[in-house]
Computed example of a mutant assay.
Amino acid sequence: MKQIIIAIGREFGSGGHLVAKKLAEHYNIPLYSKELLDEVAKDGRYSKEVLERFDEKPMNFAFIPVPAGGTTISLEQDIAIRQFNFIRKKANEEKESFVIVGRCAEEILSDNPNMISAFILGDKDTKTKRVMEREGVDEKTALNMMKKMDKMRKVYHNFYCESKWGDSRTYDICIKIGKVDVDTATDMIIKYIDSRDN
C-alpha cells in the first residue's frame, strides 16, 4: 500500500477530530491526536499528564527561564519539538501511513509528497451546538471555549509555522461543517485523496 499521510487542522467544535477518526478507519491506518502523547511519553522524559497539560499550548513568555550562561527553550517548546520529531520519524524514516490532527503537521511534513492536508472549520451555530453537547455546557460557556481554544491553536501554529493557521492557501482542501455534515466532509476528503492517486 502506498504511504498516505493525512494532516487535519481544525477549529474547536468543528468536528475535525471526528473526520480524522473516520479517515483513519476508512484507510485502516493509525490516528495520532491525543494518541500521540502516549507515544511521546514512552521515552520517559515527561509523564502523559505533563504532555496533556502543555499539548498544543502556546508559550507563556512570562515564565521562560533565561540562564545566565546562555539560552534555553520552554517546556511548551520542548514538548512541541518532540511531537514534531516523532511525526517526522513516522513519516520520513519509518514510512508509516497515518492521520495526524493538529501539531502543525501540514507544514512539518510539507516535504513529504504523500501528505494531504485538510482544514475543517464550521459555522458558529453548528460548532456551538457540538461543544454544548460534548462538554455539557451552556451556550455562553461553549462560545467562550471556542474563542479561547481557537486563539490558542492559532498562536501555537503561527509561532512554529511560516504559514498562518486556517489560511486556505496552506491546505489542499478546506471544508466547512454545517454546510455539509461530518460524513459528507469525510467522503469529500476520501474522494480527493483517491483522485490524486489516479
Rank of each mutant, 00 (worst) to 15 (best):
E135T: 01
P113W: 01
I5L: 09
K48C: 05
N198Q: 12
D181H: 05
V101E: 06
I175Q: 00
K176L: 07
F119Y: 15
K129T: 11
T128R: 12
K176P: 03
I8R: 10
D197T: 08
N92K: 11
I175V: 11
N28S: 13
I81L: 15
V66A: 14
I64Y: 03
M59I: 14
I79A: 09
R103C: 10
S33I: 00
F61K: 14
L37R: 02
I108W: 02
G13L: 11
G69A: 12
V19S: 04
G15Y: 00
L23P: 05
I120H: 10
I190F: 04
F98R: 08
I116Q: 00
S74P: 02
I73E: 14
I64E: 11
Y46E: 03
I108M: 10
E139H: 04
T170F: 12
N114T: 04
A24W: 01
I5C: 02
R103G: 06
I79W: 13
S195T: 15
A80I: 01
I190T: 07
N158W: 09
K2Y: 02
N144P: 02
V19Y: 09
K124N: 13
V155A: 14
Y32D: 08
I173W: 06
V101D: 01
G136R: 01
I87P: 03
K42C: 05
G136A: 03
S33E: 15
